[in-house]
Amino acid sequence: MKSTGIVRKVDELGRIVIPIELRRVLDIDIKDGLEIFVENDLIIFKKYEANNTCLVTGEITTENKQYADGKFTLSPVGAKILLEELKGYGI
């Protein structure tokens, strides 16, 4: 993880401001949705992209791939699960 050197305080309503420089670089605009992830003691924000959600696991990763002309998306884990299920049906 790369430090930006930017520190922001949480206000009395629990809000923080994301600096304009970061919003520009990450293409975050007004009213864009942000997903919130927690990993150990880290809070991770990611721009919400519903079209990249794995149909099987619900994961959103950069490794997800779209299939059938974009009709569905699978993560590597989701693809493995689906493949095993299909093998169980003899396909």
Rank of each mutant, 00 (worst) to 15 (best):
M1H: 09
M1V: 03
K2R: 14
K2T: 12
K2A: 14
S3Y: 09
T4D: 00
T4R: 03
G5H: 03
I6E: 10
V7F: 09
R8D: 02
R8A: 12
R8T: 14
V10F: 06
D11Y: 01
D11S: 03
E12F: 05
E12T: 02
L13N: 13
L13S: 13
G14R: 00
G14M: 01
G14I: 01
R15D: 01
R15V: 03
R15M: 07
I16H: 04
V17T: 11
V17S: 05
V17F: 08
I18V: 07
P19R: 04
P19K: 05
P19M: 05
I20P: 08
E21W: 03
E21H: 07
L22V: 13
R24G: 11
R24H: 09
V25I: 13
V25R: 15
D27E: 13
I28M: 10
I28L: 07
I28E: 09
I28H: 03
I28Y: 05
I28F: 07
D29Q: 11
D29K: 15
I30E: 15
K31C: 09
D32F: 07
D32W: 06
D32T: 09
D32G: 10
L34E: 06
E35H: 04
I36F: 11
I36C: 12
V38R: 13
V38D: 07
E39M: 10
E39N: 11
N40W: 05
D41E: 15
D41Q: 14
D41T: 15
D41N: 15
D41S: 15
L42G: 04
I43W: 03
I43E: 04
I44W: 10
I44R: 14
I44S: 09
F45W: 09
F45V: 13
F45M: 13
K46P: 04
K46W: 02
K47A: 10
Y48L: 14
E49P: 00
E49M: 12
E49L: 10
E49T: 03
E49Q: 07
A50W: 02
A50L: 06
N51I: 07
N51K: 14
N51G: 10
T53F: 02
T53E: 13
T53S: 07
C54S: 12
C54W: 04
C54L: 14
L55M: 14
L55I: 12
L55H: 09
V56R: 01
T57A: 10
G58E: 09
E59V: 02
I60T: 11
I60H: 03
I60C: 03
T61M: 00
T62I: 12
E63M: 03
E63V: 06
N64H: 00
K65L: 01
Q66M: 12
Y67R: 06
Y67I: 00
A68T: 01
D69E: 01
D69H: 05
K71H: 11
F72V: 00
F72K: 02
F72C: 01
T73A: 10
L74N: 05
S75Y: 00
S75M: 00
S75L: 00
P76V: 02
P76E: 01
V77Y: 07
V77I: 12
G78P: 06
A79C: 02
K80E: 15
I81W: 06
I81A: 10
L83W: 02
L83F: 05
E84F: 03
E84W: 02
E84S: 11
L86M: 15
L86N: 08
K87V: 13
K87T: 04
K87I: 11
K87D: 08
G88E: 09
G88A: 11
Y89G: 13
Y89T: 04
Y89K: 15
G90H: 08
G90F: 07
